[in-house]
Design a binder for these strands. Structure first.
Ligand SMILES: [Mn+2]
Ligand SMILES: [Mn+2]
Ligand SMILES: [Zn+2]
Ligand SMILES: [Zn+2]
Lengths: 144, 144
DNA sequence: ATTAATTATGATAACGATTATCAGTTTCAA
DNA sequence: TTGAAACTGATAATCGTTATCATAATTAAT
């Protein structure tokens, strides 16, 4: 079975926090790791239920929160619809091109844009702590 | 009374759409125009009620939708909490520095950042249609 | 293995923001 | 003045998410 590193991170996190291990959490973690998509809790729930139909949506939400706490996942709040969750471990900061036709996410990072944001903030005497850049349009596949 | 241009735009829009005029809509419009803040429907409702306590929140939502339709306002979806509404008429495209301490919005626009986004999209063979750049941090006042 | 303390679970209620519904009111053109 | 159409506020419904709660599973100590 793959994802040994990630599972180790989660197990340590669970142990250090005085939590207990459960089959549901393991199923949710592995299902999350197996897809590289930017999933909502509902979408992940649907995938997990294929393996373990008894898992409830509440446990998916609870587990996603744990995954974010231990930095295996992070939230992506697009501003409309449900929060999406993406892999965080081993993924550096990036922004997103989001296709309005197929909904796919393309991960991008431009050091120049990042630098110009710093310059912009400095000009306003603003201490920049983070940012969110979402770019919407039509992806290569959907253009044809 | 000020805001003649904006009122004219709204009146024409209402007439052209076969809608009717009402005191509530006028109160909501003028209250919205009077503040330059980025307000939620609830915040605007609170302000409107000072002038006209009978106005309901549903009418505020309905009127905000009309203001967006006629381009006097536009939605700002930050991704957490309520949608905010900002002035759109006479305001060119801009992005935001958002202070995590006081919640104030600083409007900014950097043509270089805009251009680099286009370059980034082109590199991915992506037809860019729009973007949202939110920068979070601490504003000048709150740094002290 | 047994126990007992503690955490985890799924169902479901509650929540906050927003939209839909509806009965009564207002607008406005004829 | 009148009557069709739009408008209103109250409130129910919706959606994504969190809180509650009774029951079940885990764990460490016996
Ligand atoms: Mn991503
Ligand atoms: Mn603005
Ligand atoms: Zn696409
Ligand atoms: Zn501030």
């Amino acid at each position: 079975m793959a994802f040994e590193e990630e599972q180790k991170i989660f197990d340590s996190f669970v142990r250090d926090k005085g939590l207990k291990h459960s089959g549901q959490r393991k199923d949710i973690l592995l299902t999350f790791l197996k897809t590289e998509k930017h999933l909502t809790a509902d979408e992940l729930h649907a995938l997990v239920k294929k393996k373990n139909p008894a898992v409830g949506i509440a446990t998916v939400y609870r587990t996603l929160r744990l995954l974010c706490e231990c930095r295996l996942s992070s939230e992506l709040r697009l501003g409309n619809g449900a929060v999406r969750y993406e892999h965080f471990y081993g993924h550096e900061h990036h922004d997103h091109l989001i296709c309005v036709k197929c909904g796919n996410f393309i991960e991008v990072m431009d050091p120049e844009i990042e630098k110009l944001q710093e310059r912009l903030a400095k000009k306003e005497d603003f201490r920049l702590q983070g940012h969110k850049l979402l770019m919407y349009g039509v992806c290569r596949k959907c253009k044809q």
